[in-house]
Design a protein around this nucleic acid. Structure first.
Lengths: 174, 174
DNA sequence: GGCGATTAGTTGACTAATCAACTATTGAGC
DNA sequence: GCTCAATAGTTGATTAGTCAACTAATCGCC
């Protein structure tokens, strides 16, 4: 098994365990991201676009307003408009302005979008299962619990930089 | 504590625990990435550029060849050349062609680069510690162990798409 | 020592992400 | 019902990431 120190060939060991944990977390997540990428890219969508389609399938027929989708994404992005532009261009998503509140635009997954997801469901589930096959059910539960706990602390740290819309650019004065 | 189901407001629960774990992993990693980003961006470097500087500091005076850096990065990227171009433009890194093997280019961190890292060391360590403060030392150890184990399975799944150089583009025929 | 294969890295063309600034619509208070 | 603030989303300009194709240097080996 690849200890982190070995894997990144860092000469000195980690100063703190939390630093080691943070690096392990990021490296593992990157591998998962690339595994997902390898599955969805042959169908000409990115992992983020896949994420949007999954969210919209979960949302059902009435769809969701654009920024609501952005909030639910696994990786937050300010580029939600153009992300959905690209999905709309491929006819995987359709948009319609809300009549009761004309500021909002509801996005819905199309038949084509649903068909694409159905093709990907099996491979993605298999990949997740196989990728994490090293871990027992108990270990998976434990991992999820630890990650949930970590996010509790992190949500304080990140102080929810994007309230709803774009990042609120807390940059230095200079 | 925010259960994942709640957090992403997914109507139906996860089909498998490994899927839930994969999502928890990615969401947590994204939060860590943004926390790091919030610290390093005011100094006009990206988290990836920060990662390169850290690697080069670890490598010492003799530096490292370009692609060796790419291999050690937390998030793999094929754009290593231009990433280092940007660091060189800011005088944080210097490059020098290797005399014994003129194909290689050794990259070294500059005095300015080291000075920048010194400014960031404290805040980054504090952020890691504080962010993961919800977890006890035992829990952190457990988390690292579980993540290491997960990567063992994943490295088989991802089948090391980039051997050394760029991604070897195993794309569909059509 | 010459020739094909391999390795190291760069470049060009294209796509995607980012942030600020903008329009359109709604809500709140008077 | 008018004005000011807030919300929802888009657009423009710039920067960064991606992949294929390329150059240059070295290696294997006959």
């Amino acid at each position: 098994m690849p200890s982190i120190q070995e894997e990144i060939k860092q000469s000195r060991p980690f100063r703190t365990r939390s630093q080691e944990a943070a690096v392990a977390l990021m490296r593992t997540a990157d591998m998962v991201r690339r595994a997902v990428s390898a599955i969805v890219e042959p169908h000409d969508i990115t992992p983020q676009q896949y994420n949007v389609l999954r969210i919209l399938r979960g949302a059902g027929d009435k769809g969701l307003p654009t920024l609501e989708i952005a909030e639910r994404m696994i990786e937050q992005t300010p580029g939600i408009t153009r992300l959905i532009d690209r999905l709309e261009a491929k006819d995987l998503v359709s948009r319609q302005r809300c009549e009761t509140d004309r500021r909002q635009v509801f996005c819905t997954i199309t038949r084509e979008g649903l068909a694409l997801l159905r093709k990907l469901d099996g491979p993605i589930r298999d990949a997740d299962d196989w990728a994490l096959a090293e871990l027992s059910t108990r270990e998976l539960t434990s991992l999820v619990t630890l990650l949930d706990k970590a996010r509790t602390g992190l949500s304080a740290a990140v102080t929810q930089r994007r309230s709803k819309n774009q990042i609120n650019s807390t940059r230095r004065i200079g």
